[in-house]
């Protein structure tokens, strides 16, 4: 009775560590196979289209609305202190430092990550991956690597677009609707947003999130139990794990980047 509890706990921990180890080996194997993509550039383009271009619309709409809401909320708070001129700064810093990379990564996990897992899981369930191996085609190179690399490339671009359109959304509400001076909206932003501290660190964040989301998505697909139920569970796990790891990584990265200031 007593030992049963310890055994369950131990098994759970061992399973998870085991899975993490397999995921790490898988990641290294895929990266090692990915140089073979150079002569097969077309594969990568297909995946950038599937992962990046098709996610564009939801990112742009979300960015615009997040920017507009920041404009409203920021204005009602700042106007109390007579500091509504700093609205541009508030909107830009919130977006570039935090909301841009994080919300983009969460949407990316939901829109692109789940699709990747389902696609790869289904390929596995219908034994397409095994078929490739029979034909001496390495599925890691042919299927997994383009998707992983495409995710890494697409995430920073999507996050930059999210932040950029969010700033415009804040301008739309703050300047056009609520009457903040357009000059001070931009100049306050320009004075206080730093190219390295804020923008470059934001790009680094989105790159890290891109690696995490794409890695989790392809591994969950590749590791899925090859049944319809297994694929659905894997897809579920992709979204949950991606979101949690993005939020956790964000805390770590933020405290590393902005902690000492």
């Amino acid at each position: 009775m007593m030992f049963g509890f310890f055994a369950d706990l131990g098994r759970a921990v061992l399973d998870r560590v085991n899975r993490l180890g397999r995921a790490s080996i898988f990641f290294v194997q895929v990266l090692a196979a990915s140089w073979q993509l150079i002569p097969r550039f077309q594969l990568l383009l297909q995946q950038i289209y599937a992962v990046g271009v098709l996610t564009l619309l939801i990112i742009l709409v979300a960015g615009l609305f997040v920017g507009m809401v920041l404009g409203f909320q920021g204005y009602t708070t700042l106007v109390r202190f007579g500091a509504e001129d700093s609205l541009g700064l508030l909107v830009a810093l919130s977006l570039v430092r935090e909301l841009g990379p994080v919300v983009t990564a969460l949407l990316f996990a939901g829109r692109a990550g789940s699709a990747l897992t389902a696609e790869i899981g289904l390929m596995k369930a219908t034994e397409q991956l095994a078929g490739m191996e029979m034909m001496a085609v390495n599925p890691l190179m042919r299927v997994i690597a383009p998707r992983l690399i495409a995710g890494m490339i697409a995430m920073p671009i999507l996050a930059a677009l999210f932040s950029a359109i969010g700033v415009l959304g804040g301008h739309l509400v703050g300047v056009e609707l609520l009457g903040v001076d357009s000059g001070s909206y931009w100049s306050q932003m320009r004075e206080n947003v730093d190219i390295y501290d804020d923008i470059f660190n934001g790009v680094i964040k989105s790159l890290v999130f891109g690696v995490a989301c794409a890695w989790i998505a392809v591994f969950e697909g590749y590791d899925a139990v090859p049944t319809s139920e297994g694929v659905s569970r894997a897809t579920n796990r992709t979204v949950v794990y991606s979101s949690l790891s993005v939020l956790g990584l964000d805390f770590v990265l933020t405290s590393l980047m902005f902690g000492e200031a």
């Binding site: 950038i48 289209y49 671009i157 359109i165 700033v167 947003v193 190219i195």
Partner: peptide, 29 residues
């Protein structure tokens, strides 16, 4: 294939523009 290439080109270009906008209009480069 042609459509994919065009869209990816547009996508990457848009990303570059967004970064440039962040650097020049939001940041102070």
């Amino acid at each position: 294939r042609r459509v994919v290439e065009i869209w990816v080109g547009v996508f990457v270009l848009l990303g570059g523009l967004a970064l440039a906008m962040l650097a020049f209009m939001v940041g102070n480069v």
